[in-house]
Design a protein around this nucleic acid. Structure first.
Lengths: 228, 228
DNA sequence: CGCTTGTGTACTGTATACACTTTGAGGCAG
DNA sequence: CTGCCTCAAAGTGTATACAGTACACAAGCG
């Protein structure tokens, strides 16, 4: 294994541990490690040009976030998600984000909804060749706005925690154009419900959306796990 | 500050960091620290007769669990929960445990329900002088069985994470006998729903139960935060 | 031939030393 | 008296040394 990860633009006042953590998260959620792969503290330390201390800190934090497994006196390994793990992860995400959507109808600003509409308009398939890019942007923003405007910072935090796990899973499966289009339609339904300030509907649409995303992921699932 | 915390019965193969973590959690959720209190790495290390390394590990973990606040180059402080924080925490807990209750009706074993009935019978107020003790036991077991039998280990994990936060809050308010009796009634309604395998009802009863618990906590709330 | 047992190696766990940051007290000028 | 500067003290951040453990592999034994 001779992967090279270098520091990119990082916050100036972050500790080395934070920076290492952020870098490894990026590597994990962009699919640069395969499930079960071992993360050696010493080699990570030399890759980042820091000592083992910040690396250990980052690895413990990653373990608490569920991205790696940390057993005493064993090398830290990248988590291997079984089919069941993926289902469970998406189920928790569904519970959290559906609740957030229900709560968000109370607090979301008209301005934010208008901005989302603009993003949505730039992502109408197959209006342009890069509507897929726009849809990913719309996707990202819609989920972010809902989490941010649910009015519950703890809930927002939990959703954020799960986002990395979901990105980790998603980096291991291909998102088809067809799925993107389906997702776009679902996102529009969620946005509609928000605009109507209909909490129950927003909750139901978000719930259906995440269930549907899970189905698509499951179709590709054999790709998950250790790839020797 | 001359608190003395010593190791109690601990798992033999746990690391020092794990043991320190466990000890501090116990101290926190049993109200031995007031909100905003500073946790000094050096003095904790000497109290536990270990070096700063395991202590730092424990403190970082506690921070990720929301029990302490960890700012760069600042002393770690015990979290101060505002009224809003308490509400938000209970709201997330409500979302998680209500969903778990809904799922648990599918998986919970008749045997477990029977055991819960037995516990419930030993906690009928005001049947005996120590029914309160029995009710606390029933409470603990009911919530544990539901989390364990929801069939989703990730969800169970999240509930576990929140349990410590809730215990932290609860250690700062008095649980009246009246509240215990009310809780007993609510617990019975949840158990009924489980026995009837009625998921929607179990979810609703659990949701109402946690909302009601929040109300009681809020009444005592001025006690929270720094106590000089 | 297989099982056990020693032993080396490559890690992680812990302690400790040192560097850097923050903070507050005290002195000095205005 | 007040505001600012300096500097020491106390704490955390990081590097590093050493201790302990698990695993692989080979030698010895049945």
């Amino acid at each position: 294994m001779s992967k090279t990860i270098e520091f990119q633009g990082v916050a100036p006042r972050a500790s080395l541990g934070d920076m290492v953590h952020q870098q490894i998260v990026e590597a994990l959620v962009s699919g640069q490690f395969s499930g079960g792969e071992e993360l050696n503290e010493v080699s990570l330390a030399s890759q980042f040009h820091v000592s083992r201390t910040p690396v250990r800190e980052a690895l413990r934090r990653l373990a608490s976030e569920g991205l790696v497994i940390n057993q005493r006196n064993r090398q830290t390994t990248v988590v291997e998600m079984s089919r069941r793990d993926v289902i469970e992860t998406y189920e928790v995400r569904r519970i959290l984000e559906a609740s957030a959507a229900r709560l968000a109808v109370e607090q979301v600003e008209p301005r934010q909804l208008a901005d989302l509409r603009t993003l949505a308009a730039a992502a109408i398939p197959p209006a342009s060749s890069d509507w897929g890019q726009g849809e990913r942007r719309f996707d990202e923003e819609l989920h972010r706005v809902i989490a941010d405007s649910c009015g519950n910072r703890k809930l927002q935090q939990e959703i954020q925690r799960y986002k990395n796990l979901v990105r980790f899973v998603r980096s291991r499966v291909a998102r088809s154009t067809q799925r993107l289009a389906q997702g776009h339609a679902e996102h529009l339904r969620i946005l509609d419900a928000l605009e109507r300030r209909n909490g129950a509907q927003a909750e139901a649409e978000m719930s259906a959306h995440i269930a549907s995303a899970l189905q698509c992921v499951l179709e590709d699932l054999p790709l998950l796990g250790r790839t020797p």
